[in-house]
Amino acid sequence: MSVTRKEMLARAADELRAAGVEIPERTAQWIFQHVTGFSTAEVLLRPDEPVADVHTDAFLALIARRAKREPLQYVLNEAEFCGAIFRVDGRVLIPRPETELLVERGRAYLAERMTSEKSIAVLDIGTGSGAIAVSLARAARELQLHCACDVRIVASDLSQSALDVARVNAERLGVASMITFVQASYADGELLRALAPFALILSNPPYIPQVNAADLQPEVAHFEPHLALFGGADGLDAYRAIVGGCADLLSAAYLVAFEVGIGQADAVTKLGGSVFARADVEVLRDEQGIERVVAFRASEARR
């Protein structure tokens, strides 16, 4: 006997609830729609329709993965960021909404500089899924409708598998020709120096202190790549490495902006003090009022 949509969704929600998954009913519906391609209206307005066997098998397999607390974005193989859908899996960190603030700051800087420059080089350090680099490329493409500035973006990551994901996203979203992918450790590497100088450097580096690992949700601790999560004992190792290598990468006028963890803005500002000694410092808060982005801006060489 065929199982109806309503019955299938109810059983899946019960399984997810028992596993401690938040909003189990809505999650079950999202996964069902992903598998079937049905709209929300089709699911809700025709609850007694039987579910095809091919959909049942695929749906139950994805529900089982989510019940093991695998992140929904990995289960669906996609995440929304800056108005676009990015492919994601366990090779890369899931893009977070708060990182959009970093992209917005970078876009504003590009909009300001592109009107008076022939070309601008941008570096995204630790690109992961390519969310920042690809989003900036899409923004630059829009801005180019009003000016002739050429924007070249370099996306670097220590992980080659992460770069593979980033390249797929750049191709899917039509900006691959604007981005060069480089395997490099933070701001280090001959190839990065060969592609310098950069007027805009952005980074969302790993910043969770190792001591906080036990406090993370299973979705994060057990599934997201630790290389992209943990920043050493105090969470600041990546910032030290990036700041230390930036001196050889900057153009005369520049903006360097970092996403930071809760309570890290002051420490990152101090770390940047030596390399960006004469730069103006901006600290931007996210929608929750948390200091989320630290930016160093100089209008001339300040090393």
Rank of each mutant, 00 (worst) to 15 (best):
F276G: 00
G130V: 13
D89F: 00
V281A: 05
R87E: 14
H222D: 14
C147A: 01
G20H: 06
M114F: 09
W30D: 12
R69G: 06
G90E: 05
W30N: 06
E224V: 03
R152Q: 13
A253W: 09
V35K: 03
V294Q: 04
T115Q: 15
T180P: 08
G128D: 14
T127E: 00
L202F: 00
I290F: 05
E42I: 04
L202M: 00
A199F: 02
A155G: 07
N77F: 01
K6P: 03
L143E: 09
D57T: 10
P47D: 14
S2C: 04
P197S: 11
R87C: 11
R96H: 14
G273T: 11
H226S: 15
N204K: 07
V154F: 05
L145S: 15
G244E: 15
L93S: 03
I201R: 00
L236N: 04
D234P: 08
F181C: 01
P197M: 04
G126D: 01
A247Q: 05
A170C: 09
D157Y: 01
T36K: 13
L271D: 11
E291T: 10
D14I: 08
E112R: 13
G273D: 14
V51Q: 03
A133D: 11
R105H: 07
G273Y: 11
D188E: 15
G83Q: 15
A277F: 15
K68M: 14
S159Q: 04
A253Y: 09
D234L: 07
H222Q: 12
G272D: 09
Y186E: 01
F38I: 12
E224Y: 02
R240S: 02
L16Y: 04
R46H: 15
G232P: 01
D14R: 11
E7C: 07
I31R: 03
L200N: 03
G189N: 00
L284C: 09
D188R: 12
D266Q: 12
A155P: 09
M1S: 12
D14G: 08
V168T: 14
Q210C: 14
A257W: 02
G174E: 10
G272T: 07
Q29E: 15
I23S: 13
G83R: 15
F59K: 04
Q33E: 13
L145F: 11
Q288H: 13
R66P: 08
